[in-house]
Amino acid sequence: MHVLGIIDRGVDGDAVERVVDRVVDRLSRTGRVGVVRYDATIADGTPVQTRDDGGSVALGGDVTYDLGADGDWTATGTGLTVQDALDRLAVDCDYAVVVGVSELRYPSIAIGPEAAEADGDDSQLAVIDAPADLETAFPTPDQGDADDGLVAALEATEPYETLGSLVERVKRSPKAERSGAIATFTGRVRAKDAEDDARTEYLKFEKYEGVADERMATIERELEDRDGVLEVELYHRTGVVEDGEDIVFVVVLAGHREEAFRTVEDGINRLKDEVPLFKKEVTVEDEFWVHDRP
């Protein structure tokens, strides 16, 4: 899944909503789109739903799904963060649009007069003044022409993956009917290696763009050539990964458990040995490159 933030930088009225409409409309032509809206006025723990007659009804339970015909649904609940919502969308959406969050680590389109000065980072796909400028930044393709510049720009960014999204992907494999096993490995940020360790706050990963992806693709291909191994997915995050967060996933779809386990282990070992990724560790006391402290 690819995540796109739509960020309000001082525009009036419904400008942000109009951009969201257009973006969702265009992305929907290529894949399934999820939308996450952050609205701080939704508060106080009790999920409330507005009825058609304008009244409201408090729903029971911490999570409530209302289901309709054909699998249509609405939901309310408590205790969900933007990150949690994205993790859930990643399982079956190709794109996620995030609205109402001003600081995002994902690719974004900023709208409004304060945009240019407020943001200097490279995650910014475009800075526009008004909804109509979306057209200038990413022209809508002609009828029947599949190449949407907005889709292409978003697809060129780092995808958002979770263990769940990778597992779902291998399950959708055409070879899945011969699979009796999925084995996975998740590498995460360890806060402490011993009781008296200085606590790790975050790791920061640098990647050799292009070469790292080629090497990961080679490892996937070579492992998939093994007898009984059907699909292999490797994914490694880059940038800042905080204490407790996931860093790396290896997912193997195989005929039987033996080759699934073996391949998952070989996959993570080869990734750690062969892929040009560099880890800087920042603890409460210090910061250092991990290869300097074997």
Binding site: Y208, I268, P276, L277
Partner: peptide, 10 residues
């Protein structure tokens, strides 16, 4: 050309 120390992913 690229120059780098031992890799340390994962």
């Amino acid at each position: 050309l690229a120059l780098f120390p031992p890799v340390s992913g994962g």
